[in-house]
């Protein structure tokens, strides 16, 4: 059995139909546990006070903002190379999720920044690259809607995704590349394991991060199923018009 079998819409719908309830329940449980634990049962930070509680939304949403674009990059490349429609539709389905995650990261960052930095916004490398990533999400979604032929739209948006990947990468490594600005480096560096977050904050944060990732999987399955159905509906409507 090959992974490419699931590029067949029928097989994708069968598998995703089975996975969706489990991922949805898992996402709900993990997000509730992580956020409730973080909000109600963790202490204030000695410097940041209660604003540290914003970390349980800000870090997972920022992580997903970048990772969703990476997922879109992979599925866009699959479309460009192998022409599997489900992969193009999965990229299209993921974009609004990434856009919302980027917006949440920007909004919570601004709200957190005001009491800590004394300003809601600064043209800091990480903040600016995140804003550009957000604009790329909007442009990507607008391009899908602007082009009538869906295969052409998939081609154009895939190329746009390749270009936007530069900003997804910059968003992730901006503080390391430029080594300046208000925003601190990553709190949970996966590669080195040298995290700067204490265990009392890290455990609920890790649960929230996993919860947001599973929420993304659930939402992208749901939305890709909708896109597959929308595509089939468009084909049926076209057939009806031709036979009328």
């Amino acid at each position: 059995m090959s992974l490419w079998e699931y590029a067949n819409p029928r097989k994708f719908m069968a598998l995703s139909g089975k996975l969706l309830p489990w991922t949805a329940v898992g996402a709900a449980l993990l997000c509730c546990v992580g956020l409730i634990w973080g909000f109600f049962f963790t202490p204030d930070d000695f410097r940041m006070g209660s604003t540290v509680k914003i970390i349980y939304i800000h870090v997972p949403s920022a992580m997903m903002a970048i990772n969703v674009w990476v997922m879109m990059l992979v599925t866009s490349l699959i479309w460009l190379i192998r022409r599997h429609h489900v992969s193009a539709l999965a990229a299209k389905a993921a974009a609004p999720i990434g856009m919302v995650m980027t917006l949440v990261a920007l909004a919570t960052g601004a709200i957190w920044g005001n009491p800590m930095w004394g300003t809601y916004w600064a043209w800091d490398p990480r903040l600016t690259s995140f804003l550009i990533l957000f604009l790329f999400y909007l442009g990507y979604m607008a391009l899908w809607e602007a082009v009538e032929d869906k295969d052409t739209a998939a081609d154009l948006t895939s190329v746009m995704c390749l270009v936007g990947s530069v900003f997804a990468l910059l968003s992730r490594y901006a503080t390391r590349f430029w080594n300046q600005g208000l925003h601190q480096g990553t709190s949970v560096p996966v590669a080195t394991g040298e995290r700067t977050v204490d265990d009392v904050f890290f455990v609920p944060l890790a649960i929230s991060m996993v919860g947001f990732a599973v929420l993304f999987v659930a939402l992208v399955l749901l939305r890709t199923r909708t896109e597959v159905r929308a595509r089939r509906l468009a084909v049926l409507n076209a057939r009806e018009r031709m036979s009328a």
């Binding site: 209660s50 604003t51 509680k53 939304i57 609004p96 919302v100």
Partner: peptide, 22 residues
Amino acid sequence: LGKYAADVVFAYGISLGLILGL
């Protein structure tokens, strides 16, 4: 939540509103 209560509640409110809306 001390003196930052409004910031924290606003951050959670706007985030949950956006995610639940999606």
